[in-house]
Design a protein around this nucleic acid. Structure first.
Lengths: 213, 213
DNA sequence: ACGGTAAGCTGACGGCATGACAGGACAAGT
DNA sequence: ACTTGTCCTGTCATGCCGTCAGCTTACCGT
């Protein structure tokens, strides 16, 4: 389904080629997490990979193209986030644990991929449809199931909030907290306290009730 | 208080110099809103301003330096956001209006400055202290007063949520919604419905109650 | 084993952005 | 007109970008 990996000029990549390509991607990933996006240069990536800029351009049209590749890989991984909600209960104490696990898992995922997600977020904000789509895929892996959970709970305790809007808000909040956790620290919220606070808000959003002691 | 405007090599800028400098800043602002941050080049800004790259480097060390200048200007403007909360009531129908006005004003501010805020957000996420500080100044102009309001209301209806964490979450949510309103659209939330939804969440966060009909 | 074919890599090059400098243009005061 | 200090730009060295021709390497059929 992925089709064959191809070079920019149309040749199919063999074993060695794919290795080189992967090495370039790895090095780019590394560069992204150590220097500002604006300063990431093809020549640096190539140097780090022990190859030449010309080789880079064989496999990717430009830096952005390679970044998209990494981002798509990450978006694939994001399906694992669905498991944080799949078949979980929102009732009583177990419900709050569900909420805590969700927050935990989401923050961990974001932290693991924070460099690439930063770039994806920027691209999306700048209106680039490709980055926007990737960002939505990641967020939807949580927003989808979460919206379902909210809708299911509203069936019991009818409230007048649009489930889509609410789950979207909650996921946006999680993303924002993950990307800018330092802001919360500056507001006097200790890292340790951040997670419970987020979990509380998620629980409140889904069930509409205070969590059991 | 700003001190005198100076060129990179230490001369003080006169009338004409300041005009040129301002023109460069305006053009940079324009460029930022029309092309990806990564692709903004000194030469383009200079060309647009009808001057030469050398002139640009006379007033700014690099693109980032000039961007910081614009960002600081914007951060100054952000004090106007405080007025959205100063002395406002959170009681009953008036309270919900306060919430609506806050959301309205915040989104408007963000939209007006979205290009520069995008870059500030990126810089902050990348760990740049200067951008982080600017972003905090903007967010604090709302988070501060909002936190006060929350604390004041908790005095009556005691709840166990940290006011700082809650106001931080709400402001983060607003920022996220402003920056990625398209995401909400993709979730089926119409632009028209987004504001009331956000206002509702802010109101809920502050008062802990559903708004009066 | 051998030659053919396609994959893989790089040196080299024109083009453009960066950033520094010195010198010329300009305005203002004397 | 002359001086002084501000302001702008032409020019230059440097370095990255993006492309290409051409060389080397691996694979495959006979």
């Amino acid at each position: 389904m992925t089709g064959q990996v191809r070079t920019v000029d149309g040749r199919v990549a063999g074993r060695r080629g794919q290795e080189t390509r992967q090495k370039l991607l790895d090095c780019l990933r590394e560069m992204l997490s150590t220097s500002p996006y604006r300063d990431v240069k093809v020549i640096d990536v190539a140097r780090m990979a022990g190859t030449s800029p010309a080789t880079f351009y064989q496999y990717f049209p430009d830096v952005e193209g390679a970044v998209l590749e990494i981002a798509e890989e990450m978006a694939e991984d994001s399906v694992e986030l669905k498991e944080l909600l799949d078949g979980k209960s929102w009732v009583g104490k177990t419900g709050f644990t569900t909420s805590e696990d969700l927050v935990d898992g989401f923050l961990a995922f974001w932290r693991k991929n924070d460099a690439i997600l930063r770039v994806v977020t920027l691209g999306a904000a700048e209106g680039d449809k490709r980055f926007f789509k990737i960002r939505m895929k990641v967020l939807n892996s949580v927003a989808g199931p979460l919206g379902e959970a909210i809708k299911a709970n509203q069936a019991k305790t009818d409230k007048s909030v649009d489930p889509a809007a609410l789950s979207g808000s909650l996921v946006s909040l999680l993303a924002s907290a993950a990307e800018h956790s330092k802001a919360f620290t500056a507001w006097g919220v200790k890292v340790k306290d951040l997670k419970p606070n987020l979990a509380l808000q998620v629980y409140l959003g889904v069930t509409g009730k205070k969590p059991p002691k």
